[in-house]
Design a protein around this nucleic acid. Structure first.
Lengths: 206, 206
DNA sequence: CACAAGTATATGACGAGACATATATGTTAT
DNA sequence: ATAACATATATGTCTCGTCATATACTTGTG
């Protein structure tokens, strides 16, 4: 259902072809909060048209394949506005990386830390890409344009999320390093232990 | 694939039935990073057994339905350890709420802000639940147990993520309020504008 | 006594999403 | 020349995940 409304949203801004939606939107402006497969975009457009939420006209091009330009209908606009007011509960968090981490106690400490550092690197790269997009973005906080502000906020969300995860990884690496030090000092059997704060990271925020 | 390995991970800790996996793990200890439908758990166990990664024995109970207790095989343990070392790129972010936000410029400011506040409330509730779980958790940062530490880190991840999103929502609400003030002062046509920092929130962190 | 809830496993049906492949044409690079 | 690439749409197929439903026994509640 999400993809349906994402497409309605983009088509309300301007009519577009499936190709445009895929390349400009789901591989571009929306890539940091929603992606979509090409096949899925076309099939969703079909379905939306059959429900009369969008309509299409074929645009003939010289020396190019025809384009099917979709535009939103009044019914589509109503449906979008109705959907915008819904407040479904946030979906449960699901992160495959946390599955890996949760069961990685069978790995040597070095490998485990390597795993976390690798992930950190990937997220750092992602964060830099997001920052570049934000810098080049339309709404550099001066346009009194609601849509541009909201687009900017979606980028902020992605950046906030990525940065928080990086910080968590840094804290986690430290904790694991401290714990593996400790294990070296106190070989199995010796069950005395050093003090460590409540896994740090968890200050008295909010 | 993720569910396969989550199940292998839990079964490596101790043999369990599908019912246990569903109620204790995917509705309990793992719920903050992975969930699974009951039907999917049983079907995945079937598949893992047919691949000889787990085996089952039927435990007869008096005055209760039989239980099929699954345990991990050597092949299962190898597969889990192999998988643990994989470093796939982080999956693209996907957040249905951000679709809604992105296209919510057709809503009146009050409704838009209501949407954000509602979400904030839901996340605050989630955060409190996570904090309780963390407080009651096994690893209160004193056990020198790698598995308990890693379990704790997954909770930290969920809390960090949730808190970051709440902070972002607070910043966003402020920005939208500021913008809608501004719009009231400068009715359409009047294209002068007030100063606003680069959507705040984006300090010079990291 | 009826009914709901807890324990326990299983199947049918469907939608969402990913991947591969097919088709057609023109331009650009090797 | 030929291959690769960009433009443009479409279909087949598969996995993952969700929802509904079926079965069967027991305990607790009204």
């Amino acid at each position: 259902m999400s993809l349906d409304h994402a497409i309605l949203g983009f088509l309300r801004e301007r009519p577009m072809s499936g190709y445009d939606l895929k390349t400009m939107c789901f591989d571009g402006r929306a890539a940091h909060f929603w992606t979509a497969d090409q096949a899925q975009v076309y099939r969703t457009l079909d379905r939306l048209e059959s429900r009369a939420l969008v309509r299409s006209r074929t645009e003939r091009q010289r020396s190019r394949p025809d384009r099917k330009i979709y535009s939103i209908t009044d019914a589509g606009t109503s449906e979008l506005d109705r959907w915008l007011r819904e407040t479904p509960p946030p979906p449960p968090l699901r992160d495959p990386f946390l599955i890996r981490l949760r069961f990685a106690d069978s790995l040597p400490s070095e490998d485990l830390i390597g795993l976390l550092r690798e992930r950190r690197g990937a997220l750092q790269t992602r964060l830099e890409a997001l920052r570049e997009r934000a810098a080049g973005g339309a709404h550099t906080a001066t346009t009194p344009d609601r849509a541009a502000l909201l687009e900017r906020l979606t980028l902020d969300a992605a950046m906030a999320d990525t940065r928080a995860t990086i910080d968590w990884l840094d804290d986690s690496i430290e904790l694991i390093e401290a714990e593996s030090e400790q294990a070296r000092e106190l070989p199995p059997g010796t069950q005395r232990r050093l003090f460590a704060p409540p896994t740090a990271a968890e200050g008295a925020k909010r």
